[in-house]
Structure formats: structure tokens, C-alpha cells
Design a protein around this nucleic acid. Sequence first.
DNA 1: ACCGACTATTCCACTGCGGTTATATAACCG
DNA 2: CGGTTATATAACCGCAGTGGAATAGTCGGT
Lengths: 101, 101
Amino acid sequence: MPVDAIAVLAEPTRRRILDELRLADSSVGQLVEKLAMSQPAVSKHLKVLREAGFVTSRTAAQQRIYSLEPGPFRALDAWLAPYRRMWNRHLTALERHLEES
Amino acid sequence: MPVDAIAVLAEPTRRRILDELRLADSSVGQLVEKLAMSQPAVSKHLKVLREAGFVTSRTAAQQRIYSLEPGPFRALDAWLAPYRRMWNRHLTALERHLEES
DNA sequence: ACCGACTATTCCACTGCGGTTATATAACCG
DNA sequence: CGGTTATATAACCGCAGTGGAATAGTCGGT
């Protein structure tokens, strides 16, 4: 399911966008400023993120405010689950203690 | 840290390799058979996975047995952590109940 | 209805990556 | 040492994706 969700995350710029949106919903213009990149580039990445379900946009006047959607993140977490079981078997005593908290 | 770890996982073939190795350590030849792909292709993917720390290989006669390493998976999990906090705020009552188990 | 602000789309050049074929290296065996 | 098996590397090709510049679309204000 997260089939190509991971591929979407492979792009550093897209991860930066997600980092920004995690802190606050943003308009395209705000992202352009933060990322110091051309507006078309940002819009194109947003399109990819949108189609993969990572973000949604609501219209506010001429701006479009983007915000995160948890779905694909949860899917990625689910993909990771079987491996998590594996690495839990590799816990050292110290790590096992930290795991308690 | 998982900087390009995610990019490494973006490749479907590499995820298939990881899936196989999760079930059992395997030689290159065994992976070639499972994946129905040319041996050089598999070797190249293994090189990428090795350099990203996802797998290690031990030599057994002419064969090289590959096995998983938990490190990068944990790093990915760490990258996901801040987003996990986000989607936890979106839990419904039902989900919240299931989360208890 | 026109203008200005904001965003999306198109076109193009470039780069990088995955796959195959061919070849090199390494290890075991007689 | 010669031959065979097993894996890695090299060279090449085709394609997909990214970024910029230019262009089109959308919406509110006057």
C-alpha cells in the first residue's frame, strides 16, 4: 500500500516540505520562501505529495493552504512493523531498559 | 541520518530483497532465483543496501550470505517519530482503544 | 471587466538510476 | 595449475524524474 509512498519520500525537497508542514500549515508562497526554490518546483512537489495522500489543500482567497494527512505515514509505519519485530530481538540490555519508558 | 536510507528503500526490488532477507538469510544466487532477475542487477542492489547499512554479508565458501541489519530501520523509525505524534492526535475513539493492545 | 496576486501547468535540458551483456575477480576442487 | 561455481564490476543504454523559464489558469478587488 505504501507502495510508492516511500518513493515519494525519497526526494529530499519533499521531506523538507513535510517538515515545514509538520510545524505549521502553509501556503505555497510560504513554502517557496522557506525552501528558497522556484515556485513551479514547489507546486510540482506538492502535486506529488497530494496525489500520494500526504497532504491536502484548502483554498483561502488566492492562496492554497497545505496541511499534512496522517494516512501515508501510518501506512509507512505499518510497512515497517515486521522489521520492527526483527530489530526488537536485537535489543541490548540497555536498549531494552530504555524501551520501557 | 536516514538521509538517503529512504531513497534506498524507494526501489521496489530492494524492498523485495529486504522482504526475503527478513524471512531468511540468503546467498546472492538464492535471491537471483527468488527475484527472477539477472545476477548483476541483484548484486548492484545488494551493494546499495550494504553501503546504506541495511545488510551485511558473510563469506561461506564461494557464496556470500546476506542478512539484515536493524540500524537503518531504526533510523527510519526515528525519522517517523515526529509524524507519529501528529497522527496520534488524529486517533478516533475506536483507534485509540485498539492502540491500547 | 480589467488588473494584480497567487498557484498550476507545460516545455525543455540535464542528470541519475535500473537493467542487461560482457568481463573480471575470488574461492573451491581435482 | 586448470576448470568450475559464485559473485562483483564495467560499459552501455533507455527512461523517469527534477529544476528552471515561460505560460496559463484562478480568484478577489476596484
